[in-house]
């Protein structure tokens, strides 16, 4: 119908009908922009609300003493140092394990494994693993690391191992997507001058995929840092007044500390809870900042 009309008459680009169609297009564009802005606004408002209430309630609890002392039954001498150190040690263990294993798995699955029923099955399993609730990983950690391997209870080592199991699938999935996004022509170019498969991967594919891999890692790590449930399962909920000196010492972590304090009857702990939340958020912010800095650095390498 339209094509017949356009063959019969010359399209009138400046006519009224065209002008009104044009105006309609602009209208929907403005509407879309407004909706997007509103969507961003909602999440920003929630964030501002959270930060605002936390700061209002917890700012009074923040002091040098709060940062340097550990848990105590007396709110006056209770601090987050032990939990902060525990969180740091736990996340180091998680990172040291989940990142290399996750990236290696992603590389192997994308670049070396043959495409067949087995790799399809592995893919489905990994995707499922990423969706498994974290409490299940806690039960797994309890069964394997504590009851079977007899690793020390309540230790950052076990917490880190458990969280690594949880984070690995996220890194594998992000890594595979990032590796897939590297254009095949780059691989061909490298193969064409006689690079081996490993040289192609490490000289060309990985540098290009690294920003994407790091993005996935940041998300996984942030989730691990805020995780509470699986750590409760492996006994990191004990009352620990001495900060851990190594990854095998009993320890608490920030989210669990927050959980424990929020359960206290003493009103003075309410302030402590909010203050601990502020510390956790700052810790996360610093970690994400570092990760984003690293990602941008690698992106600038062409």
């Amino acid at each position: 119908m339209n094509s017949v009309a356009s063959e019969a008459a010359i399209t009138r680009w400046t006519g009224d009908a065209m002008q009104s169609r044009l105006r309609k297009r602009y209208r929907s564009e403005r509407l879309f922009k407004l909706l997007g802005f509103a969507a961003v606004g909602i999440s920003l408002a929630f964030l501002a609300f959270l930060l605002g209430t936390m700061l209002w309630k917890g700012a009074g609890g923040l002091s040098l003493g709060f940062l340097t002392m550990s848990d105590s039954t007396d709110p006056a001498t209770a601090g987050v140092w032990g939990a902060l150190k525990g969180s740091f040690l736990t996340i180091v263990v998680t990172m040291a394990l989940a990142f290399p294993v996750g990236v290696l798995s992603a590389i192997y699955l994308e670049e070396f494994a043959a495409r067949n029923r087995w790799t399809d099955m592995i893919e489905v399993s990994i995707n499922n693993l990423a969706a498994v609730p974290s409490i299940i990983f806690g039960l797994l950690g309890l069964a394997v690391f504590l009851n079977f391997m007899h690793l020390p209870r309540s230790a950052p080592l076990v917490g880190g191992l458990t969280l690594a199991l949880m984070t690995m699938p996220v890194i594998v999935i992000a890594g595979r997507n990032a590796i897939q996004a590297v254009p095949p022509s780059i691989r061909e170019a490298a193969l064409g001058v006689g690079a081996s498969k490993m040289q192609v991967v490490f000289h060309h594919v990985l540098p290009l995929a690294l920003p994407g891999i790091l993005t996935g890692t940041i998300i996984g790590m942030a989730r691990a840092l805020g995780e509470t449930a699986p750590l409760l399962m492996i006994g990191m909920r004990a009352f620990i007044a001495v900060p851990p000196s190594g990854i095998t010492d009993p320890s608490s972590v920030l989210p669990v500390q927050i959980f424990l304090w929020s359960d206290e009857v003493d009103r003075a702990f309410v302030e402590k809870t909010s203050a601990a939340i502020i510390v956790l958020l700052v810790f996360m912010l610093m970690m994400n900042g570092l990760a984003i800095y690293l990602r941008n650095r690698f992106e600038q390498r062409w």
Partner: peptide, 30 residues
């Protein structure tokens, strides 16, 4: 080794996203 002995220039230009120097030096180097 076969691909080093039988070199190829592809239909679509596909330089590495590296420096001009590195592009040319890559083969001799590896």
């Amino acid at each position: 080794q076969l691909r080093a002995r039988v070199g190829m220039v592809f239909q679509k230009p596909n330089p590495f996203p590296k420096s001009i120097y590195e592009n040319v030096a890559y083969g001799p180097r590896i």
